[in-house]
Amino acid sequence: MSVLHEGGMLRLLGNCPVEDAEALMAGLRAAPDCPVDLAAAGALHAAVVQVLIALRPRLLNQPEDGFARAWVLPAVRRAVAHHSVTT
């Protein structure tokens, strides 16, 4: 379990495998305005990534994992921006 609901935000902790997608989605459905804190996030599974894009939570902090920080998070932000414009 690496999705933690804590202090008014959802925190992704360490590597987030495919199962975390369901927990993340459930958490965000329950509290749509809840931001997601990535400060402690490791490698993010594609299933988790697509939930971040589809549900567009506010994203806080830079992930700990280098690849996630350098490539995934910026790509997610661009995808979200694009999908906000078109919907």
Binding site: E22, M25, A43, A46, Q50, V72, R78
Partner: peptide, 29 residues
């Protein structure tokens, strides 16, 4: 995403949708 991580000499990564994101519904899998 793990495959993307293994791409050598990465210059750009873009994530797009196959169908509109609304179509994902409640199925993250």
């Amino acid at each position: 995403m793990a495959l993307a991580r293994d791409v050598p000499g990465l210059l750009a990564l873009e994530l797009r949708d196959q169908q509109d994101w609304a179509a994902l519904g409640d199925d993250p899998y």
